[in-house]
Design a protein around this nucleic acid. Structure first.
Length: 235
DNA sequence: GCATTAATTGGTC
DNA sequence: GACCAATTAATGC
């Protein structure tokens, strides 16, 4: 039953790198070599500093990737969901993972071994080219994040996060964003402490800009929030 | 139902 | 804006 979890042929993730190139005849042999499994909520599937074990793709679910700082403080680097890929950094250049990854909910993952990935990269130029474009895009995002952390204050970074998850995960018909992050995780993303994140959420709530139901957050006025961080969006 | 964990608030540096 | 303490809410077992 485990291997039945994720079949690329019937997968709905059109944005997945594998799925996008599945029409190529050569890809079929590699796809059959992948290994898929379930990672339970809040469990890690990549340990920071552990030896590389290939590339992971999210078939269904959500995950965070983190970097651990000096005093045990974590920085959330990226949030990922269906079709996204994880563990691509350090590929070829490093023997160990430079990030850790945790499931934010029960998540079905697909794993391609180092050897399989190497074969694909060497033999399927379309795939390699697409991955290069992806890297370039990720680098750009990473540079934007540096700027954000340098120039934005905490309130602005929290607002930025809210708009980001709003855009990435969407809002359901109750007006709540389709992801559950703990206050700690919000803080880890915004590069601050849990208390500070809570205070900012509280004031945003008082200002009628957001609403909260348990861990879920809803944006009442995305445009107002957007305008508050507008000055940082020059690009 | 109890026990551990998360969220919140207030205060100090 | 971080760190600590106290209280309350939520969640796991």
């Amino acid at each position: 039953m485990k291997e039945e979890l994720a079949i690329c042929d019937t997968c709905a993730n059109e944005n997945c790198f594998i799925k996008k190139h599945l029409h190529l005849e050569q890809m079929k042999q590699y796809v059959s070599k992948k290994h898929s499994f379930v990672c339970k909520k809040s469990q890690p599937f990549i340990i920071e500093g552990a030896p590389l074990q290939g590339l992971y793709f999210i078939c269904k679910g959500k995950a965070k990737t983190v970097k651990t700082g000096i005093n045990g403080r974590e920085q959330i680097v990226r949030l990922t969901t269906n079709g996204d890929t994880i563990g691509f950094r350090g590929f070829g250049t490093s023997k160990r993972y430079l990030i850790g990854a945790y499931a934010l909910e029960d998540t079905i993952l697909c794993n391609f071994s180092n050897e399989t990935m190497m074969d694909i990269l060497k033999n399927v130029p379309e795939f390699t080219y697409a991955l290069m474009l992806f890297y370039a895009d990720e680098l750009n995002k990473s540079e934007n994040n540096i700027r954000k952390i340098a120039h934005m204050n905490v309130r602005e970074r929290v607002i930025d996060l809210l708009l980001y998850i709003h855009k990435k995960f969407g809002q359901n018909n109750n007006g709540l964003i389709e992801i559950e992050l703990s206050r700690k995780e919000i803080a880890d993303f915004a590069g601050t402490t849990e208390e500070q994140a809570i205070r900012i959420l509280s004031s945003l709530k008082k200002e009628d800009l957001i609403k909260t139901v348990g861990k879920r957050i809803g944006l009442l006025s995305p445009s107002k929030l957007q305008s508050e961080i507008m000055e940082h969006k020059y690009f």
